[in-house]
Write a protein that binds this DNA or RNA. Structure first.
Length: 260
DNA sequence: GGTCATGTTGACTA
DNA sequence: TTAGTCAACATGAC
């Protein structure tokens, strides 16, 4: 699932179920999901307590006594908290046995997710070259990160080193709402349009978070329910255009989002 | 069987 | 350096 709103939802789920619990045991169901050797991961995490969590972009950090576990959910990641080991999900890749008798599974059907360890969040963000978090960044950080950039809007929004957290679907929604053509060069936007874009990033992500990343409940006036061939723009009725940028498919309204 | 998918990364070309 | 393209990764749905 995960773009920023989904990861925020996973964070809340983790906080509500597993925070302050101690890891009694760990079972690695598939070590391809780990960025570090299995033995090392187990050694560093077993016996530790989940002290706090922090989300940056699409990454979730879980603080142990000193180090952090870093969860990335790829396209099909999830958590599941349960009591009976028989309920372990099919695609459970890492199983944490907690000291209250419950289990937490890190799930990844397609194995695109990754689990890592880091000494500090700062160090990890630097290593991954992640930009400011899309949901919590300030307008100053936003303008600063776009400075001297000439990428097209769609690419810029999805580039995690520019802004962290926005993916294919939400970038389409944000551009639609701001009435920006996906191929508009970011440095050609007026200051007013940039502020508009900033506000819409916040609003779209906020809406996503409030709905726990559930894309099936989106109102008709959003683009997301219409990202299908032959669908019409909910604002003006024009047939939406499908486009491709760097191997990712998007939709936009050629009338509402004209390229000036 | 073919195509597509909410993501990231590294190689390669301007 | 910055931008953009593409293949690779692994699996399930239609």
């Amino acid at each position: 699932m995960p773009e920023l709103p989904e990861v925020e939802t996973f964070k809340k789920y983790f906080d509500n179920t597993s925070l302050n619990k101690t890891v009694k045991d760990i079972k690695i169901r598939d070590n391809r999901i780990l960025k570090i050797p299995e033995e090392q991961f187990i050694k560093e995490v077993k016996g530790q307590t989940f002290k706090s969590t922090l989300r940056h972009g699409k990454y979730l950090f879980v603080k142990l006594n000193s180090k952090y576990i870093v969860f990335h959910f790829g396209m099909t990641g999830d958590f599941e908290y349960f009591n009976d080991l028989n309920d372990e999900p099919i695609h459970s890749r890492i199983l944490f046995e907690l000291n209250n008798g419950y289990y937490l599974s890190y799930i990844s059907m397609r194995m695109f997710g990754k689990v890592d360890l880091t000494n500090t969040v700062k160090e990890f963000l630097k290593k991954k070259k992640l930009g400011p978090d899309g949901y919590t960044m300030t307008i100053e950080e936003f303008k600063d990160t776009l400075k001297r950039r000439s990428a097209i809007a769609k690419t810029a929004l999805m580039d995690q080193s520019i802004i962290a957290g926005i993916g294919n679907l939400y970038s389409d929604e944000i551009l639609f709402r701001t009435k920006i053509h996906p191929k508009t060069k970011i440095n050609l936007l007026t200051d007013a349009k940039l502020v508009d874009l900033f506000n819409n990033i916040k609003e779209v992500l906020k809406f996503g978070i409030e709905n726990e990343g559930d894309l099936s409940i989106y109102p008709n006036n959003f683009l997301i329910p219409h990202r299908v061939l032959e669908e019409k723009c909910p604002i003006c009725g024009t047939i939406l255009q499908r486009y491709e940028i760097s191997g990712r498919h998007g939709f936009f309204c050629a009338t509402c989002q004209s390229l000036k």
